[in-house]
Amino acid sequence: MNHEAERYERLFLIISGLFLVGFLIVLAYTSIHMGVMLPGKVGVIEAKAGESLAAAVFRTPPFDHLGVKKIGPDDYEAVYFAQAWAFFPREIDLPVGARVKFIATSVDVTHGFFIAGTRVNMMLLPGQISEETYTFRKAGKYLLLCHEYCGLLHQTMHAWVIVK
């Protein structure tokens, strides 16, 4: 009975192991061929002695010019900062097909930056710059949410991305 059980166990583990490896291969495929990437290391914002973090953010490019900037035929850059409990800018307009690099940071606590229904999903940490690129293929009114708890009025923290 035991030998049989051991054989079954080995079989069970080999098959499950193959599944796990298969999943990893699919993951690698989506990253390499479809370009679905995690956000990585971008840069930090350091306040000088006596300077507030907010002041440091506003003098550091690109945060000295908030909002959308066209940088190529279909390429855009959207620069945001988050502060309890709002995003700036509160609303942006983009054409369908726009490939947008979202660049954002926080000036106070940890916030989230999540556009519901897309994979634009990142954390904003004070002093750290976050970046993610996404192409909007469908028109619509997209809800940009703070999805990390950031204090009393966290549930009100949102903005809009209008794609026409």
């Binding site: 990437m37 995690l38 956000p39 990585g40 290391k41 971008v42 930090v44 999903n121 990142m122 954390m123 904003l124 940490l125 750290q128 710059i129 976050s130 970046e131």
Partner: peptide, 8 residues
Amino acid sequence: FVDPGVSR
């Protein structure tokens, strides 16, 4: 995974 400041 979606934090800034940690390398890919």
